[in-house]
């Protein structure tokens, strides 16, 4: 039995226990997907469904996105509010997102049981396909740290997970999920020294080059809002981009409107984005959103020593201030 399967079995047993002790009545986790290299989020309502859960290098989704909806209050005040007792399988980024949502009162703390997984990072599907050079028809995480795939052309490859990591995993500020309620044992990724390394190319560009990159990437946008829908911390009932009064921005795919939407969304994510890259994965036209979310996150960390979801008892970034906040952007007389 591989170590990954160990963790998977431990997870399944833990979930069965949580149901048995009635600590949870709903568990959100990952199950096998219908396509290779993919898992999908599953919703379990009893212990006998627990064996559907999987844990492998393809558990990329951020299940925290479901929390605002699961804990939504009924429309009528006369209806009784019956929130679920939720157990959520979480990687480090997922746990940060859950804590951000709890801080923003999207769920009662006592109703959420965070199940921290031993996360060694997730495989980036793009990297796998590029390195395989062909369509992947089968993908398995076999012995620890390796991903074995078969391609449509019949070739077999074995890649080290460390060479396939998503940008989100390379940039992760945590060695393992923190502030969780239950921790599944297993080896986690320890290397947090590569944070923001991938941003260096963008930062080294001149202002005009950065503008051209931004413009080029965003010109692909078709305003499908997949980025917003998949983001755990985007849960406004009416998004600013959909408002008619005031009409902040047009809904079309003209560049000016597209930029307004994305810069606006980034501003609303300042101090809230946990850099899980769900937006980048969801984008159907392949916009490099993660470069911009990283730039935002890096600035926030540099200016205010703030990493969203890392320290749950900290005040939210833009609701607070310090007397010695930076004045580097203020024009002096």
């Amino acid at each position: 039995m591989t170590k990954m399967q160990d963790a998977q079995n431990r997870l399944r047993e833990t979930v069965k226990d949580l149901f048995a002790q009635q600590k949870v009545d709903l568990v959100v986790g990952f199950e096998a997907g219908s396509l290779p290299l993919r898992t999908r989020v599953c919703f379990l309502t009893s212990a006998d469904e627990a064996d559907r859960l999987v844990w492998n290098a393809f558990c990329t989704n951020n299940p925290a996105v479901y929390i605002p909806r699961l804990f939504q209050r009924p429309a009528s005040p006369r209806e009784e509010y019956k929130p679920p007792k939720l157990g959520i399988v979480a990687k480090a980024c997922d746990a940060r997102a859950v804590h951000k949502l709890l801080e923003e009162h999207q769920a009662p703390r006592e109703n959420v049981t965070i199940i921290g997984m031993p996360c060694r990072g997730m495989a980036c599907r793009d990297k796998v396909v590029i390195q395989a050079g062909d369509e992947v028809v089968e993908a398995v995480e076999s012995t620890e740290g390796a991903v074995e795939i078969k391609t449509r052309g019949g070739a077999s490859h074995r890649f080290e997970l460390q060479d396939l990591l998503q940008q989100a995993c390379l940039d992760c500020p945590q060695a393992a999920p923190e502030h969780v309620d239950v921790q599944i044992e297993g080896a986690s990724r320890r290397d947090t020294t590569r944070r923001y390394e991938g941003l260096k190319n963008f930062e080294a560009m001149s202002a005009d080059q950065r503008w051209e990159y931004f413009r080029h990437e965003l010109s692909k946008c078709i305003r499908c809002y997949a980025c917003r829908q998949v983001c755990p911390t985007c849960y406004c009932k009416t998004c600013f981009a959909d408002m008619a009064k005031p009409r902040w921005t047009g809904a079309g795919d003209g560049l000016s409107d597209v930029m307004f939407y994305h810069i606006g969304r980034l501003m609303h994510q300042a101090g809230r984005c946990v850099e899980c890259d769900a937006c980048t994965r969801a984008c159907p036209v392949g916009i490099d959103l993660k470069t911009f979310t990283r730039k935002l996150g890096k600035d926030v960390e540099r200016l205010f020593d703030y990493v969203p979801g890392l320290r749950p008892d900290e005040a939210p970034l833009l609701c607070a201030f310090e007397d010695d906040d930076t004045e580097e952007f203020v024009t002096d007389g």
Binding site: A207, D208, Q209, R210, W211, E212, F214, I263, L266, M267, A270, G271, F292, K295, L296, D299, V300, L303, F304, L317, L318, C319, A320, F321, D323, D325, T326, E327, E328, F329, V330
Partner: peptide, 22 residues
């Protein structure tokens, strides 16, 4: 404290706009 909140908010906005080339 309005200006103290604005200081953070405008700093982040300015940083973001400059990052994309403004």
């Amino acid at each position: 404290k309005g200006n103290l909140l604005a200081r953070r908010r405008l700093s982040v906005l300015k940083g973001l706009l400059e990052a994309v080339g403004m």
